[in-house]
């Protein structure tokens, strides 16, 4: 398992026995999109965290087990919501495709 990668982001240094990881990539027009903003909302729609996507369009959150929504904001007023279920010890991989 050491050094294994899923969805392009390395899990080196992350203890999956204690962490609940949600990660993935934002894609627009078949290209990964850097500089988009991904917000993690809880099951009540409350904001929990936000990250900007990396140079390769990737993002990662350390969450808790449960149901979450990923809200992605990109230039030109583009937004997209994606539901995701996270489980401790597993990596929830999400590809957000923007229209």
């Amino acid at each position: 398992m050491c050094g294994a990668t899923q969805g392009g982001l390395t899990l080196d240094g992350i203890d999956l026995t204690t962490q609940t990881v949600i990660q993935g990539v934002v894609v627009r027009a078949a290209e990964s999109l850097p500089g988009a903003y991904v917000r993690l909302l809880d099951s009540d729609g409350e904001f929990v965290a936000e990250v900007a996507t990396s140079a390769t369009g990737h993002f990662r959150f350390f969450a808790a087990p449960g149901s979450w929504t990923l809200r992605t904001l990109a230039p030109r007023g583009v937004t997209a919501d994606r539901a995701v279920v996270a489980t401790r010890g597993e990596v929830a991989e999400v590809t957000v495709i923007l229209g």
Partner: peptide
């Protein structure tokens, strides 16, 4: 902080290791 941090279900914002 977020409701989960307030309640004690999370110890840090969810984009940082816990």
């Amino acid at each position: 902080r977020s409701p989960d941090e307030y309640a004690g279900r999370l110890l840090a914002p969810a984009h940082l290791p816990q």
